[in-house]
């Protein structure tokens, strides 16, 4: 008996072709990496400007005086670095399909960012009182533009984190991509402090024990990416693809957030530590 080749599922092939990329990597991920390359030049130019002008203190305080106490910036740096860790946990949660913890970690990350921005605001206020303003000296101006632009990046990151936390639903019921109209009230409700409970979150993903170690083990657990069966149906393929896209939403903001953190490490070293 001659075995008949299974009939080609053309509709599935068309969809696969639509999603095919030459490298196997998603477009958005490649975009993000390239964009971060561009951002390197952006911060590189700012840091270079700072290095050129850091000794130009004119009437304002000099570096030693301005950065006498590194306590606050150290705390800021620590919190921001810690937020990179919570970001990793958020991604792990997303990979597990744990909507609730993903949201929790994302919001905690955003909160760390908020703390950072708040501290930076305080720092700027403090410096202004010390006489270190953009007009006092080029040291002040280049310092504030450099850290200010970094702060703007953090702020954008916070907005993005919150948006992802609110908008990304790992387990949609019906509508894959919520439309603006239905999301806006939810978003406003969220801002007002009444996050809606996610009905579709899987029970088994919730931590069973309150014990810390178990919790930690669970949270850091990143399961291997789900494999799509060879004979998957169109529905399965689409569901798989959609799930990947949603995790990618978290991954992208994560890439951006890690980058912003690394930039802070560089700024912290170059601006505050090097004398």
């Amino acid at each position: 008996m001659v075995q008949q080749a299974p009939p080609i599922n053309h509709a599935l092939e068309d969809i696969k072709e639509h999603h095919r990329t030459s490298t196997g990597q998603s477009h958005r991920k490649v975009l993000m990496w390239t964009f971060l390359g561009s951002e390197c030049m952006f911060f590189g130019s700012l840091i270079a400007t700072f290095l050129i002008y850091h000794n130009n203190v004119a009437s304002g305080p000099n570096r030693e005086h301005a950065f006498e106490s590194l306590f606050l910036v150290s705390v800021m740096a620590f919190v921001l670095l810690a937020s990179s860790f919570t970001m990793v946990l958020a991604l792990a949660a997303a990979r597990r399909g744990d909507q609730k913890m993903m949201r929790a970690w994302l919001l905690l990350t955003a909160f760390c960012g908020l703390f950072f921005i708040g501290s930076q605001g305080y720092e700027f206020y403090h410096f202004t009182h010390e006489g270190l303003t953009p007009h006092a000296s080029l040291f002040g101006a280049s310092f504030m533009i450099l850290t200010g632009f970094h702060g703007a990046h953090v702020t954008l990151g916070i907005l993005w984190l919150v948006s992802v936390a609110v908008l990304v639903r790992l387990h949609p019921k019906k509508d894959h991509r919520p439309i603006m109209a239905s999301m806006l009230p939810k978003f406003l409700g969220f801002l007002a402090g009444v996050p809606k409970r996610e009905p579709g979150a899987p029970i088994e993903a919730r931590p069973r024990h309150r014990r810390f170690m178990t919790f930690a083990r669970e949270q850091t657990l990143a399961p291997p990416p789900p494999v799509l069966a060879k004979d998957a149906s169109i529905e399965q393929f689409e569901a798989h693809h959609l799930a990947e896209e949603k995790v990618l939403n978290v991954e992208l903001v994560g890439l951006y957030w890690h980058f912003v953190d690394i930039v802070w490490v560089v700024i912290f070293t170059v601006v505050y530590l090097f004398r």
Binding site: S38, E39, M41, F42, T49, P134, H135, L138, A141
Partner: peptide, 24 residues
């Protein structure tokens, strides 16, 4: 992608000079 950010910074500094009175 790599060159544009550099002029962007130059323009930002110039803008600060012109709009807010810094002296880059």
């Amino acid at each position: 992608v790599l060159a544009m950010p550099v002029i962007t910074i130059g323009l930002v500094l110039l803008m600060f000079d012109r709009f807010t009175g810094t002296s880059f």
